[in-house]
Computed example of a mutant assay.
Amino acid sequence: MSEPDGVPSLHGRARLSNPVHFLALGFGTGLAPKAPGTVGTLAGLPVYALLLPLPLWGYLLATLVAIVAGIWICDRAARDFGVHDHPAIVWDEVAGFLVTMILAPVGLVWVVLGFLLFRVFDVLKPWPIGWLDRRVGGGFGIMVDDILAGVYAAVCLQVIVLVTGA
């Protein structure tokens, strides 16, 4: 069974009561009928807010945990769903957004800018993001393109910080 856009349906396979599915689906945001990656990235906002009070080393450690655990979470969910990198799997977007916000100044403007930059790099997939996305499988393959998109967005964000003197 497929959705109208040709994406295989998760009906009966995804269970929010399953902790792995719950996380892989970005607390359910990945089930959004339109733009699940963008909606899934929004799930990263409260995670970021929870991590914001941590010292830098704590934020980096939590982000690393989200990435490493995400490799397993996304791999397991993809196997459960029977589809590699199903659009509803958005934990990679959550982790990628956390990477984007490393060293970002605190403030709504920076969160919005980080969000937009991350989405641009995640959607456009400039080299080598798109190359990796097409060639690397499993949970690592699901995660790596979004982590790299987060790195690109973080670098751009830091350039903007330097240029603006923020």
Rank of each mutant, 00 (worst) to 15 (best):
M1Y: 12
D5C: 01
V7Y: 04
V7G: 01
P8D: 02
H11D: 14
S17T: 15
N18V: 11
N18R: 00
P19F: 00
H21M: 14
A24Y: 05
K34H: 04
K34A: 13
P36G: 08
P36I: 00
G37Y: 05
G37S: 09
G37R: 07
G44S: 11
P46G: 06
P46D: 05
A49F: 14
L54K: 07
L54Y: 13
W57L: 14
A66W: 02
V68M: 05
G70D: 05
I71V: 15
W72H: 13
W72D: 00
I73E: 06
R79F: 00
D80G: 06
D80M: 04
H86D: 03
V90W: 08
V90A: 13
W91I: 01
E93I: 04
G96F: 07
G96L: 11
V99R: 08
V99D: 08
I102A: 15
I102S: 13
L103K: 06
A104S: 15
P105N: 00
P105W: 05
G107S: 04
G107C: 03
L108W: 13
V109P: 00
V111Y: 02
V111E: 11
F115S: 05
V120G: 01
V120A: 15
D122V: 08
P126T: 05
I129R: 09
G130Y: 12
L132G: 11
D133F: 10
D133G: 05
G137D: 12
G137C: 02
G137T: 05
F140N: 06
F140W: 13
M143D: 14
D146N: 14
L148E: 04
A149F: 05
G150N: 03
G150D: 11
Y152R: 02
C156D: 01
Q158A: 02
L162M: 11
L162D: 02
V163E: 03
T164M: 13
